[in-house]
Design a protein around this nucleic acid. Structure first.
Length: 685
DNA sequence: CGGAATAAGCTTTTT
DNA sequence: GCTTATTCCG
């Protein structure tokens, strides 16, 4: 049977004038000048960027020479999918033909890792380097902090996590230690010299061990681009460089881009200053505000304001919230879609909040809206705890984005450390962790072993020569056998060997070994999808599994499930119905972030991002009383919350406020959960 | 020296 | 609630 060629619809037909201008910018020129697209929430940003890439390829650009940088891995996947789709249509391919893919699409960090590995020999870096995630970096900082004697100072020295936060900001914002401490961590004033000494030791340690942390991936890339010859060579590999979510880039990233394309030709950046929510990670809004003036002639600026996602009442409320922001690129989103007003729901406490959301979700589902089209958003990972319990109780499947991580569980880190130590015997961190898993070996013996390995030319030989304490001898023997097997085995059998060695330690150390073993089997499944041990270790750090589901087991992909997500992880996503939890001062803005006005402004944008995720239904929930488990002194206590300062009286009128909460408070009768019995009966078949 | 038990903080968001 | 530093015992 032959398939008749489908009539080819113009893939660009649905673009509006501004989008089309962005897509066609510089067409016909060999190297288009720099372009900045200011794309408000829901204005078809991804579509526009994908169409521009497709247009370029269709006009003859080589996909291998297009660098597409995105902020998150999730966005990178999405972009690749969309580009593929537009290209597929544009080139008139049949159903079975593959559109060309973009080999250089990824996050700054992953592209950086790839380039660094490639150029490692010419910049004095070991191509074998391993990558530390945040947890590893913190552990290493902790080790150095201990070794330098800062753990036992008279006055309390900043904790390892704080040290790493300061260090990370120093690197990403390109600022001196003094300024970061003064502006971000004033309670650490007085420790500047010690911190600098600590950071020097930390850097030495990383180089000694041949590891890079997240910040290094950008820092080394940036430093590499400061060498004109290398910058020239790297820049010449790419005809077009496109950057998504430009408002979330930091100074290092901006510097990298400028190194790649000093005159801006071939450079396109897209973003929305109103959605800048990563200043805590040293993102620099000025990057996008100042972009046009970096070049002569200045970059062209195109602004997209027509919203295709939400209804006008949702936009009115969102515009009003962001309208009170101190400084921004003025733009008002508009649409021609009518709809209901967003809701402002007041409930008594977090329990009622969870019950209300569960009810609302089920009601929407009964009305025909699949769970995957609904999402619950919140400021911090733990804000969803009560809701998760309620959902589990009611058997509503859900998947949670953001918050706790599979890779951070102790047993998963143990197993990964085994693989990493074998891969890179100079990794002191992995070694320290693994060695102490062996019964009879503690910090002192581990240190002796690692010192010997560090001093040796061949660290593996030093390990074999190591004489452990007598009582540890049999277990050490078992480790060496596993180690040697791992050195000579193939992939993905490695994971099995490592697990077999680790299992007795797991059972000895943890009461819930069975549950944890299941996680390791999960890890083995993930591992089998990678080409080899090195790739697995490198990519797992940069592209960890993003969603974790509750312990009752991950829902199958074909099942319907509700989305729970932090507001940060919700960026770039959209759902038909969105519920925002804890819209209360103290949660949003978080009381961690009410110190400086910039911080409060970022929280405002965060609420704006959350609200603009909604297509048709938006509900903000305000519990009047919520539990805090902070500030240890008096233990847990209730706080009486008031509606967030971002929705003052003048804005409240843009919402519907059902009076139901009054009835709830006034009713002395015990609260019965509202259930849809009919629906339950139907569902049981 | 190793390891368990006890005491004492801290608690956002992500690559 | 969960990690980190100290203490004490084998």
């Amino acid at each position: 049977m032959t398939i008749a060629p489908a009539p080819r619809p113009d893939p660009y037909a649905s673009l509006n004038a501004e989008q089309r201008a962005a897509v066609e910018h510089g067409r016909g020129e060999a190297t288009p000048g720099p372009l900045l697209v200011i794309a408000g929430a829901g204005t078809g940003k991804t579509m526009t960027l994908a169409s521009r890439v497709a247009r370029l390829v269709q006009d003859g650009a080589d996909p291998n020479r297009i660098l597409m940088l995105t902020f998150s891995r999730r966005a990178a996947h999405e972009m690749e999918r969309r580009v593929g789709r537009v290209l597929h249509a544009a080139l008139g391919f049949g159903a079975t033909q593959q559109a060309p893919s973009l080999p250089w699409a990824g996050t700054f960090h992953s592209v950086g890792a790839r380039l660094l590995r490639e150029y490692a020999p010419s910049v004095g870096l070991s191509p074998q380097f391993t990558i530390h995630d945040r947890g590893d970096a913190e552990d290493l900082m902790g080790m150095v902090r201990q070794e330098q004697g800062f753990a036992a100072t008279e006055k309390r020295f900043p904790l390892k996590g704080t040290c790493l936060t300061v260090y990370s900001r120093v690197v990403n914002a390109c600022l001196p230690v003094e300024q970061v401490v003064r502006e971000q961590h004033p309670w650490c004033l007085g420790w500047e010299e010690e911190l600098k000494r600590l950071f020097r030791a930390y850097v030495d340690e990383k180089q000694q061990q041949q590891v890079l942390d997240y910040d290094d991936l950008l820092l080394y890339w940036h430093r590499m681009m400061e060498e004109p010859a290398i910058a020239q060579a790297v820049g010449a590999r790419f005809d077009h460089v496109l950057v998504d979510e430009y408002q979330d880039t930091n100074r290092l990233q901006a510097g990298i881009l400028l190194g790649l394309k000093p005159d801006g030709r071939g450079l396109t950046v897209v973003g929305d200053d109103a959605q800048s929510i990563y200043a805590f990670r040293a993102a620099e809004v000025r990057n996008i505000l100042d972009f046009p003036a970096l070049f002569t002639p200045p970059a062209r600026v195109i602004t997209l304001t027509r919203n295709y996602r939400s209804t006008q009442p949702i936009l009115d409320a969102s515009n009003a919230v962001i309208g009170l922001a101190a400084e921004r690129h003025a733009k008002e989103l508009w649409t021609d879609q009518a709809g209901e007003r967003p809701q402002l729901i007041t409930v008594e406490d977090e329990m009622r909040q969870a019950a209300w959301v569960a009810d609302a979700v089920l009601a929407q589902r009964e009305a025909g809206l699949r769970l995957t089209r609904q999402a619950v958003l919140f400021r911090a990972g733990h804000h969803s705890a009560a809701l998760e319990l309620e959902l589990t109780r009611r058997n509503i499947p859900f998947v949670k984005f953001g918050g706790l991580k599979f890779l951070e569980a102790a047993h998963v880190k143990d197993l990964l450390s085994v693989l990493r130590w074998v891969q890179n015997p100079r990794s002191r961190l992995a070694g320290f962790r693994v060695a102490q898993l062996i019964p009879g070996i503690g910090p002192a013996s581990a240190r002796r072993l690692l010192d010997a390995m560090e001093a040796a030319d061949d660290p593996r030989q030093a390990m074999r020569a190591f004489r452990p304490p007598a009582q540890a001898a049999p277990d050490w023997q078992a480790w060496m056998q596993a180690h040697d097997a791992l050195c000579s085995s193939g992939w993905p059998g490695d994971v099995e060997i490592a697990t077999r060695w680790y299992q007795p330690q797991l059972e000895r150390l943890h009461d819930d070994a069975v549950v944890r073993l299941a996680d390791l089997q999960q890890l083995a499944r993930i591992a089998s999808g990678y080409a080899g041990r090195e790739r697995f270790l490198a990519e797992l750090t940069l592209d960890p599994p993003q969603a974790t589901s509750d312990e009752s087991g991950a829902p199958h992909l074909d099942e319907d499930y509700l989305i729970l997500s932090t507001m940060h992880s919700a960026k770039g996503q959209e759902w038909t119905a969105v519920y925002v939890l804890n819209v209360v001062d103290g949660c949003i803005p978080s009381d961690m972030a009410t110190g400086r006005t910039e911080d409060v402004e970022e929280e405002r944008r965060l609420l704006y991002v959350a609200m603009t995720r909604a297509k048709r239904h938006l509900s903000l929930v305000v519990p009047q009383r919520f539990y805090v488990t902070q500030q240890g002194k008096g233990g847990d206590r209730h706080l009486y919350g008031s509606l967030t300062r971002f929705i003052p009286g003048s804005i409240v009128r843009l919402f519907n406020r059902p009076a139901m909460q009054v009835a709830r408070e006034a009713t002395p009768a015990p609260q019965l959960p509202a259930i849809d019995l009919m629906a339950r009966v139907r569902r049981s078949f």
